[in-house]
Design a binder for these strands. Structure first.
Lengths: 146, 146
DNA sequence: CTAAATTGGTTCGATTCACGAACCAGTTCG
DNA sequence: CGAACTGGTTCGTGAATCGAACCAATTTAG
């Protein structure tokens, strides 16, 4: 009999499983040199490029950490830093072709997981889950500015 | 306008906020020398003591990592290792009085968060959220044996 | 009932993650 | 213009993480 676990812990368990699956799928697809922390950062980069501080906020890490992660990603050829035309101080972190090649893989695994979860919960409950989580974001996401 | 985020990411956001709050509450209560990773491990120790490998499984980390974390927790006086009467190889990690003193603080903050979330979602949706997450555990928790 | 395989745990070594503090170069504000 | 702020980097340090190898106790196979 499973005891009642705290809601945040339940989220942790499910999230960890999903992230692990995506990580494994990417590894199996040949992207063996991306770590989970680097992957989380990559996931925050928009198609037009994103500033480092924004990436740090999205991932919930300090900007120094983001600098180090981007350094590695750049060395591995997944991103490049280009000057931000709108602000001389800033630079935009852009995905390279190599990184873009991993997007379909990640998306596919993501879809597979969502499907698996929906199959287990049923469409109604899955929808309820997503609605509740999305609404919860209003009070738990420090980075509401998306 | 917020785009549709993947379900696992939504969980990550909420979980991170909750864990951060509990961590801060503990720090404010004077438990300044416990890190988040150590706290996650502590949370997995039952009142009667728990084996290291079980703790590692619950936290989703390698046993070497658990050894290192328990080393630090033991040095800081939060746990102690006692022989497992049922198995000569094993030892049980037990909470000390100092660690037990932090339980009420963590529980209280946990309750506050659950209450805050329930207030934001409404009781019905909060219940749906917990039910869905609990059911999801059946296919996402590698450590079902609890 | 011994020998082999398994299990609980530790040690070693190396990599990664993470952040405070300090700093520089641009930008914005008064 | 000068002050305050913002985007980013560098430096130094501590924490987390795990593969590999190992030991001791237990369980399993023959």
């Amino acid at each position: 009999m499973t005891r009642e676990l705290p809601t945040p812990l339940l989220m942790f368990i499910a999230h960890r499983a999903a992230e692990g699956s995506i990580f494994t799928a990417l590894r199996d697809a040949g992207f063996t040199d991306v770590t989970q922390a680097q992957g989380r950062l990559l996931a925050g980069i928009d198609p037009t490029g994103t500033r480092l501080t924004v990436l740090a906020d999205r991932a919930g890490i300090a900007k120094q950490t983001a600098t180090a992660l981007v350094d590695k990603l750049e060395a591995a050829g997944y991103v490049q830093r280009v000057p931000d035309p709108g602000d001389g101080r800033a630079r935009l972190v852009r995905l390279t072709g190599r990184a873009e090649a991993m997007i379909p893989v990640a998306r596919a695994e993501e879809q597979r997981i969502e499907g698996e979860w929906a199959a287990h919960l049923g469409p109604r409950r899955m929808r309820q889950l997503r609605e509740a989580l999305t609404q919860l974001r209003e009070i738990t996401d420090p980075y509401v500015g998306q």
